[in-house]
């Protein structure tokens, strides 16, 4: 197995399963936190991630197929391409990303770390990866946070394109967008001047 990338909470290896190129994602132990916190987080997140990936793939198709699940390890299909955060001279369809997110939210899959580091761009479009912080929930707040993370990470215009496609695709998108506006308005974003 060859190390492909090292994330904050896991190491991703390239391997092969049934002759097909695959990815193994291992949540390795983190020395900075105590064993009890570390073990619980790694176990529950691995399980949660598997569940969310399966559901997301079912509804939007733009998620790698899961091939196997271990205690701290997920085996999945390998998606070729470039991470959105590293994309330079390539046209990216942000509308498509918005649409994909809307389909996931419609099925109550919340990504939890929806940033340009977790989207792969290739010829067939945008693929959503790393469901490590995902959840299955109807929480409007959590859905709005998915949007907020991306809003903070990309150019304003690109985000606007993504958001408009998102709101067209999702039935109750107004609730989510209103909550997003709410979150941004919360105390710490307000600026008031005293004389």
């Amino acid at each position: 197995m060859r190390l492909l990338s090292e994330g904050a909470e896991s190491r991703v290896f390239v391997t092969s399963i049934f002759g097909k190129s695959a990815v193994a994602k291992l949540r390795h132990a983190k020395a900075y936190r105590i064993e009890q916190i570390d073990g619980t987080l790694r176990k529950t997140r691995t399980k949660k991630e598997a569940r969310a990936m399966n559901k997301a793939r079912e509804v939007c198709g733009r998620v790698p197929a899961l091939l196997g699940v271990g205690k701290f390890t997920l085996y999945m299909e390998k998606i070729e391409g470039t991470l959105l955060k590293d994309v330079k001279n390539q046209r990216v369809d942000y509308g498509e990303i918005g649409k994909t997110l809307a389909k996931m939210h419609d099925a109550d899959v919340v990504h939890g770390d929806f940033t340009p580091a977790n989207i792969i761009i290739n010829k067939s479009g945008a693929w959503i990866i790393d469901f490590g912080l995902s959840d299955i929930t109807d929480s409007i707040e959590d859905k709005a946070l998915d949007l907020l993370l991306m809003k903070r990470s990309i150019d304003r215009k690109l985000y606007a394109g993504m958001e408009s496609a998102y709101s067209k695709e999702l039935k109750n998108s107004k609730l989510v967008l209103d909550r997003l506006a709410d979150i941004e308005k919360r105390g710490r974003y307000q600026v008031r001047s005293l004389a």
Binding site: G7, A8, Y32, T115
Partner: peptide, 18 residues
């Protein structure tokens, strides 16, 4: 203390790598 500091570390580590 362990829980809150672990949270800070995790978010910080993610920021460093991103």
């Amino acid at each position: 203390q362990e829980t809150s500091f672990a949270m800070l570390c995790e978010a910080t580590e993610r920021a460093l790598l991103l």
